[in-house]
Design a protein around this nucleic acid. Structure first.
Lengths: 339, 339
DNA sequence: TTGTAGGCGTTATCAC
DNA sequence: GTGATAACGCCTACAA
């Protein structure tokens, strides 16, 4: 990859590098004749300006770093798609990295990206990240930072998340509207922000319909393999067993869906089922699964736009935003009704 | 992000930049005392060498470009995961780009990546790319190039693909071993390399078992929505209807699996089912689906390693390799048997 | 053991 | 209109 430079052009045409540079940038000071000559020669020799030299001079790389827990994850790959699209629209490149859900690796890789002089960083925290001082330090050194999905509560910057409370409300509300009264909520670890948000949306819907909240219908899951059947059995052993399931993530939806069917429950006749689910196979299940879809692409796209704004603004904005993007409720099959 | 430079350190410690540079690189010529001073100060001020300056000097960027048809695709995101892992192991960054299956965008983005001085390029062709002269030109200008999965036939370089013929053979062979004799083969457009390879593996297995090949059992699909049921009906209207299905891709497996069940066929009692399928939900279907899995991660990883070897070798290798990675047959449930 | 100078590719500034 | 020079951050041959 030996590339032709301005210097080469200058030498070939008996001009100075400054003249060539100006001609290439179509400066008004250069005679039409010279311009023509330079442009023609440059074209012929496949001249391409060296962006590295420019980066050095202008102290920016026209690239943004993206740090996600894992790339091979349906949700994150959709988000990356959105990020790449936004970056492309504005002439930036995307440098990608994954923490593999490791706190140590997150620290190392973030530092690595920063030393590579990405112009800004887009992040979703690893699940093992409790302390965010490495990111605070980065921010204090002037690195534009935007978080999406897995956001920290104690860093001030733009953040983009799905409206989990709203989505859970809408989902539970729909189940209640169609006559369900005992809605099991299968969800993630109680400590997580999204878990709390979703639980709140669920509770709000119950309240709207004057249905009392029952703690025993909520199951916090750790993804253990035998947990699914144990939880299903426990729920159906209750004096008032569930007539609907509302699950909180991709990784919970399918196991419980399959688990219910395996246990002989008919969906939706015996038990309605509604879950957060981003894989595009929900319509191919039997019966098709009704789902709450996270706007992964849009989140990535929006987060990237905010980051690029931050980068190009040069100075801090008056206020940082936290953007809540709506989830989408998709009802499939007989509308979850009992009839 | 105003960063401290060698010059700053030199000024602060009353040294020359070269001394500082040498101290940081732990050169033998520098006195331990000076080294200590410099290192300590650098550490304290969070000094990070500017890789852009180095890139400019050494004409390399320590990054590789990755061009895939789409990021938000289970197969490619797994491959990117492998690529990132290999790059990370060897200290390279990954710059990502997608053609969105567009020939024009592929040309533009590849050029863009090249002008960004990535040290090498990892590619999977867009489905609309027939002419690869833009890539030949790139290669002739000295850019190391490695292809994976969607490979061109007329560019000489390293290539990494799944052993589709072998995988199809293994799959069909298993179906034949378990007593099936009329195996429908649902596959992609007949023009594609992978389609031909899989068909050949299928035929080879038939031959091994002395079962004649029947053209009417092969269905080339275009992903039209009504096609699934039409094809299923056509197949079961044959004088000798199929007793097994072998599908050729993620996007065909689920629709046909669901379609068969919808039509009332029991799997595997009425008809065995085996398909290429990379989504990790196959075991959660009802009944669990037996699958042929493509080694997506390994392909990305291997391709990246080959590319890095190429980059670091400085000169062309004696011969280019085409690596065939084995697919994996996973049998779930009652081994597809009829008993 | 440390310092000086030149160069990687580009552009901005100042001269002519 | 065009050219010379310095600067971006770093490294390294050469000098001291």
């Amino acid at each position: 990859m030996d590339n032709i430079t301005i210097k080469d052009i200058a030498k070939a045409l008996n001009l100075s590098t400054s003249t060539v540079s100006r001609a290439l940038r179509d400066s008004y000071e250069i005679s039409p004749e010279t311009k023509r000559m330079v442009l023609e020669y440059a074209e012929r020799m496949h001249y391409r300006p060296n962006p590295i030299a420019l980066s050095l001079k202008e102290n920016r790389s026209q690239s943004i770093g993206v740090m996600v827990p894992e790339i091979a994850n349906n949700y994150f790959s959709q988000a990356i798609n959105g990020i790449e699209a936004a970056a492309y629209e504005r002439g930036y490149h995307v440098v990608i990295s994954q923490s593999q859900e490791s706190y140590e690796r997150e620290i190392a890789e973030v530092e690595h990206l920063a030393s590579r002089r990405v112009d800004g960083l887009l992040m979703s925290l690893s699940s093992h990240t409790a302390d965010v001082s490495h990111l605070k330090s980065l921010q204090s050194r002037g690195m534009p930072l935007v978080f999406f999905d897995r956001i920290p509560s104690d860093i001030e910057t733009h953040k983009v998340i799905a409206d989990n409370k709203g989505g859970a409300f809408e989902a539970a509300d729909h189940l209640l509207e169609t006559g369900r009264r005992s809605i099991a909520h299968i969800t993630s670890q109680p400590g997580l922000f999204i878990t709390r948000e979703r639980l709140q949306g669920y509770k709000d819907a119950l309240q709207k319909h004057n249905v009392p909240f029952r703690e025993e219908l909520v199951k916090y899951c750790s993804y253990a393999s035998d947990e699914v059947e144990r939880n299903i059995d426990a729920l159906f052993s209750l004096p008032q067993p569930p007539d609907a399931f509302f699950t909180a993530s991709d990784r919970l939806a399918l196991p419980y869906y399959a688990g219910l069917k395996k246990r002989g429950f008919r969906i939706p006749e015996d038990v309605a089922f509604l879950g957060y689910f981003n894989l595009n196979v929900s319509d191919l299940l039997d019966p098709p699964m009704s789902v709450v879809v996270q706007p992964a692409f849009e989140m990535g796209h929006k987060a990237a736009e905010l980051l690029l704004d931050l980068i190009e603004a040069k100075q801090k904005p008056d206020a940082y935003q936290t953007v809540n993007l709506s989830t989408k409720l998709i009802i499939r099959g007989s509308s979850l009704g009992k009839e």
